[in-house]
Nucleic acid binder design. Structure first.
Length: 134
DNA sequence: CTTCTGACA
DNA sequence: TGTCAGAA
């Protein structure tokens, strides 16, 4: 039951999310403006992303690679819970909804791929928070 | 130093 | 989208 809570638990900073997703801060903020994601905020107004947000961002990224525009992505994301049907030009949603383990594995590879070896410790901390902080 | 908002050569 | 400024 608290799995949903874990996935929506705010624990990633903008910098971490940039490394995780490969997206720029500009893009991430822009997607938030379009209500594609809804990060939490700290007292200092800093964005704090949850596992869910990161996963969504990952979906957005792949959709972007497939040439889908913002309107299309918004449509795909909103029709997430329901296995709706897609008209002509709109893509066919297939993947997403990975297990925590798979997501973790992917996220870690993304970090290493990002070439941030100096921050590995900090990154590990981000993930450990997800597991320890039950 | 990192992130935020608003704006535009 | 990138990027710069000014503030937090």
């Amino acid at each position: 039951m608290d799995d949903r809570l874990r996935r929506s638990m705010p624990l990633f900073s903008m910098g971490i999310v940039q490394n995780l997703t490969g997206l720029t801060a500009r893009q991430i903020r822009y997607y938030e403006e379009n209500a594609l994601i809804e990060p939490e905020r700290t007292e200092g107004n800093r964005r704090v992303f949850s596992f869910n947000d990161v996963e969504k961002l990952l979906d957005i990224k792949s959709l972007l690679d497939e040439g889908v525009n913002l309107a299309g992505i918004k449509h795909v994301l909103s029709s997430k819970p329901v296995e709706a049907n897609q008209p002509l030009n709109v893509v066919k949603q297939k993947k997403s909804d990975l297990s925590d383990a798979d997501l973790m594995k992917y996220l870690k590879s993304e970090l290493i791929n990002a070439g941030k070896f100096g921050d590995q410790a900090a990154i590990q901390g981000e993930f450990s928070r997800f597991f320890n902080q039950k």
